[in-house]
């Protein structure tokens, strides 16, 4: 063994060792999700400190289950936003898939699992239709999907006459109410979907194409990327995930409610923005968007746990969301300052 190999390097060549807390802050600051993670930690910690009912197994299960439905829609919406698109019909697609599932299972007596598959295909088909109309007719996704939300929502009312379909088979209610090793099944479904979509977005060429299209669609087209095919595929994915959320909600409620999905339009967009997804496209990730949905879910939870007046709820939840976004922006500015 030579002398050189045993001599430690000069102190000036090693990065300075930071205290653990500073090291964590530094690592968070270097991560694109650092701001949203820090905001989440603060909100989570404050909730634990302020309410004895927050950090209980029962309450965590409530948050996890509620997150699952909005989280699935958020994944699809975040992919579209990274592409530079928006789909305002995702809630209506989820609701339509739910009632079609109810009709197939209850009124037509079809096998529940087959019904589930058909509903998912229908959801993907609705999304694909949106994508096809947007790409082939060169329509703005925001405007087109407002119209399609009316079409899908109207079809929902035509099919149900506004009345819930009851008698959903017990075979399928496990998907909404069951637990896997103490974890709600819908939450497990969310994690699986998130893992798959995050892998595709961050580790495959398709994911890189999506970021490229979101950053500059013309440049992406010149590079030979099949822009329209990928856009249609992303809309189909958003429709598929919305339908999955809708059918899981039917399994959870045990009835196919025509109102399913009514609240799934703005929440996922807000969650994605909180999670660092740029509305202009090209920036963000589904993981960040779901973390944004976790923040919203915790805020909705603590508002009820603290017994805040229903008339103040929107003010409080909106205020916390603004604080979370501001915190994220400040963290980014801090990061940029250090980089300079």
């Amino acid at each position: 063994m030579s002398l050189e190999t045993t001599v430690p390097a000069a102190p000036s060549q090693q990065p300075p060792k930071l205290p653990p807390l500073k090291a964590l802050v530094s690592r968070l600051a270097g991560n694109p999700l650092g701001g949203v993670i820090a905001a989440l930690v603060i909100i989570f910690g404050a909730s634990c400190a302020l309410s004895p009912h927050f950090l209980t197994t029962f309450n965590m299960m409530i948050i996890a289950r509620a997150l699952a439905f909005i989280g699935l829609v958020t994944i699809g919406q975040s992919v579209l936003m990274i592409l530079g698109e928006l789909d305002l019909s995702v809630g209506a697609i989820g609701g339509l898939a739910g009632v079609v599932g109810g009709i197939l299972m209850v009124q037509l007596g079809l096998n529940p699992w087959l019904s589930l598959v058909l509903c998912l295909l229908m959801g993907a088909g609705c999304g694909l239709l949106n994508g096809a109309l947007i790409t082939q007719l060169r329509l703005h996704s925001l405007v087109l999907t407002i119209g399609m939300a009316g079409v899908y929502g109207g079809a929902n009312l035509v099919a149900t006459k506004g009345v819930a379909i009851t008698g959903v088979p017990r075979d399928i209610t496990f998907l909404g109410r069951g637990l896997v090793m103490g974890v709600p099944v819908p939450f497990v479904v969310l994690l699986v979907c998130l893992a798959i979509v995050a892998f595709v977005m961050l580790r495959t060429p398709v994911g890189r194409y999506i970021y490229a299209i979101g950053s500059n669609p013309d440049a992406a087209r010149m590079l030979g990327i099949r822009v329209n095919a990928i856009r249609m595929g992303a809309f189909a994915l958003a429709g598929f995930l919305s339908a999955l959320a809708g059918i899981l909600m039917v399994a959870r409620l045990g009835t196919a409610q025509p109102s399913i999905g009514d609240t799934w339009v703005l929440g996922p967009i807000a969650a994605a923005v909180i999670g660092g997804v740029a509305t202009t496209g090209g920036i963000g990730s589904p993981i960040g968007a779901v973390l944004g949905a976790v923040i919203i879910g915790i805020i909705e939870d603590i508002i009820v746990l603290f017994g805040i007046s229903p008339y103040w709820q929107s003010v409080v939840s909106g205020g916390i969301v603004v604080l979370a976004i501001s915190f994220d922006a400040l963290a980014r500015r801090y990061l940029n300052r250090d980089a300079v």
């Binding site: 690592r27 991560n31 999700l33 993670i37 209980t56 961050l202 993981i287 779901v290």
Partner: peptide
Amino acid sequence: MKTAFAFAAMLTAAPFLAPLAA
């Protein structure tokens, strides 16, 4: 991104490791 995954895993597990409600 590893930090994000680790945090997501921690968040997922924490509620279920939390002591049962007194």
